[in-house]
Design a protein around this nucleic acid. Sequence first.
DNA 1: CTAACTGCAAAGCCTTTGCATACCA
DNA 2: TGGTATGCAAAGGCTTTGCAGTTAG
Lengths: 123, 123
Amino acid sequence: MAKRSTRQKRAIEQVLHHARGPLSARQIQAKASELCGSLSLATVYRIVATGAEAGDLVTVHLEDNVTRYEDKNRKHHHHFLCEDCEEVIDIQLPCETLAHRLPEGYAVTRHEITLYGRCAECA
Amino acid sequence: MAKRSTRQKRAIEQVLHHARGPLSARQIQAKASELCGSLSLATVYRIVATGAEAGDLVTVHLEDNVTRYEDKNRKHHHHFLCEDCEEVIDIQLPCETLAHRLPEGYAVTRHEITLYGRCAECA
DNA sequence: CTAACTGCAAAGCCTTTGCATACCA
DNA sequence: TGGTATGCAAAGGCTTTGCAGTTAG
């Protein structure tokens, strides 16, 4: 399964590779269909689901309950959601201390930090 | 609007007041209907929407894209989602340094930190 | 050639909304 | 009694899935 290289897959990989932050399925469809012509939403969902299972993509979850997808091939980072323009931007944050001060016995495998506010352009 | 005290509202307030972490609409319905008899999901959504607008409730967003609700009347805290039992638990974490190292000009109004892993019981 | 992939449409959740009924004050 | 709140069912948005047709290798 999931072996062939198609126009649709290549377009989605391109789009995610050049994104400034995580993208929703609709955003991916909009940008990728500029590159590959026809691209249905169902196909976007199938491709990103495969990518997420394979560990090539990371899923991101914000307050609108819409899943966003992001190339895993990046340094560890976090997200900033501008409440004006609603763009999501990758940011670097120190997070080494997060595991401290947990109740005894908890094992942390990963984490998500999201900041909300105004980006430089909207402020 | 939103002025009367009803069985349903009191039950939901009770449930959220005693919760160990944020609850989904379904969870609220299940627990609150034990207290007040009949309680439709639509009513749960209307009551928590009103509470969130009034600032009495905080909404929480995790990877299943299901909104959870929580009494605002608590110290600032974060969330831990156990990947085994899928319970969400409130935790305290140091977060004063989060505003540092942001790109110039960004204004942060609030943030969400979620840890994923195994809780003490499931580990 | 054929197994994998795509598109379309239907279906499945979560959530919201319209409308008639029930109920607090 | 009057107007708010509730319940039900239908509708809306995101996501998944079945199926028939398309395409990569």
